[in-house]
Each structure stands twice: as structure tokens, then as C-alpha cells.
């Protein structure tokens, strides 16, 4: 049953995409109504601060780590056996 459901979803990427975007929209709207009473620093007071942090952090991390791997760290899997 789960398998059929997941296969059903996989065959409909547009549906997944739109429900995901709907979730993001919900998250942003929710942010306007959040109680910022316990804010730790200035970033906590900005609406959408953590959304930007999350997106840029994620993109930055992928670019930085993958880049570093390609230019420096990457070796054959039996590198140490040679």
C-alpha cells in the first residue's frame, strides 16, 4: 500500500512540487504571527531571517563542500592501498 502510494506520488512530480511550494508559503506566513518574545539576537526579529539562512546555508555548503572535494580532497577509493 505504501509502495503504491509512493509510486503514485513519484509519477506526479508537479503535485509534489506545488505542495512543497505551498508548504514554504505557509512557513513564511506563519513567521509573521510567531511570538518573538524569546529572541536571542537581532536576526531573530527579522521575518524570514532563517529562511534566507537556510537557503543560502544549504547552497553555500553544497558549492563549498563539493568544490573542495573536486579540487582537493577527492581520491580513488583505493587511494591508500597503492
Amino acid at each position: 500500500m505504501i509502495v503504491n502510494f509512493l509510486t503514485y506520488l513519484r509519477e506526479r512530480p508537479a503535485l509534489l512540487k506545488w505542495s512543497f511550494l505551498a508548504y514554504l508559503a505557509f512557513a513564511i506566513i506563519f513567521d509573521f504571527y510567531a511570538d518573538r518574545h524569546h529572541a536571542h539576537f537581532w536576526g531573530d526579529h527579522l521575518v524570514g531571517y532563517w529562511a534566507v539562512f537556510g537557503l543560502l546555508g544549504c547552497l553555500g555548503m553544497i558549492v563549498f563542500c563539493k568544490g573542495l572535494s573536486h579540487v582537493w580532497l577527492e581520491r580513488d577509493k583505493d587511494h591508500y592501498d597503492k
Binding site: A27, F30, G48, L55, C58
Partner: peptide
């Protein structure tokens, strides 16, 4: 509610990334 919104954003926009 604040901690929830922080988590929704971090996770959601990481997913977007």
C-alpha cells in the same frame, strides 16, 4: 511558536536548496 517557525524555515528552505 518562535522555535517552530525557525524550524519550518530552516528545514523548508534547505529542502528548496
Amino acid at each position: 511558536s518562535y522555535h517552530l517557525t525557525e524550524t519550518f524555515h530552516l528545514l523548508g528552505f534547505t529542502g528548496l536548496g
